[in-house]
């Protein structure tokens, strides 16, 4: 039988975020991004346009790169979420984070978590992207400082570090996660 959840009563959600299981009671209309930020305090995932265009809120859900402002928290019930806070491993930056550091792939930094998450998703699928492929993959991420040149260089730097040799450990766990 399906679960039938009726507003305005709160409904139970349970999901694994960056390896930690969280359970909460939420309104069905609560967006995943607000659940991450307001309920869990994971404020690295940003809200900017709020109209599904800017990509500041990109996270992984069950290995898919998604906009957490366009998904309900209840839709992630049972799922595996990785946010920007989950990329670094034991104090060591992910190669994509390192690339943004080395190439100064930011100006004000507001779009940076989303840029890094989208770039990470690109390199999962295509470890050796061309410049055109990088720009295409970042089509859903807006930088209003217009710092795109260094962002592209940052992704190229990360690709060079990964060396086309496959995924990073964190990425592997994101893509092998399962939908409960």
């Amino acid at each position: 039988m399906a679960e039938t959840l009726t507003a305005p009563a709160k409904v139970a959600v349970r999901m694994t975020v960056n390896g930690t299981v969280y359970a909460a009671e939420v309104e069905p209309r609560l967006l995943l991004v607000h659940f991450l930020r307001d309920n869990l305090g994971l404020t690295g995932t940003h809200v900017a346009c709020d109209t599904s265009q800017c990509g500041s809120c990109v996270v992984y859900l069950n290995g898919d790169s998604i906009k957490s402002c366009t998904l309900l928290a209840v839709q992630a019930d049972g799922g595996q979420v990785t946010t920007i806070e989950g990329l670094a491993k034991e104090g060591t930056y992910d190669p994509v984070q390192q690339g943004f550091w080395e190439e100064h792939g930011l100006q004000c930094g507001y779009c940076t978590p989303g840029m890094i998450m989208s770039s990470h998703a690109l390199l999962q699928r295509n470890p050796n992207p061309t410049e055109a492929e990088i720009r295409h993959a970042l089509d859903g991420n807006l930088c209003r400082c217009t710092g795109y040149q260094n962002i592209v260089r940052a992704v190229q730097h990360a690709a060079g570090q990964i060396g086309g040799g496959g995924s990073t450990p964190q990425a592997a766990s994101a893509s092998s996660s399962q939908n409960a």
């Binding site: 399906a2 679960e3 039938t4 959840l5 009726t6 507003a7 305005p8 409904v11 309104e27 069905p28 209309r29 609560l30 967006l31 607000h34 709020d50 109209t51 309900l72 209840v74």
Partner: peptide, 10 residues
């Protein structure tokens, strides 16, 4: 921004 209240069925 967040939507109006609604019932959620799965």
């Amino acid at each position: 921004m967040f939507p109006n209240q609604f019932a959620y069925h799965r």
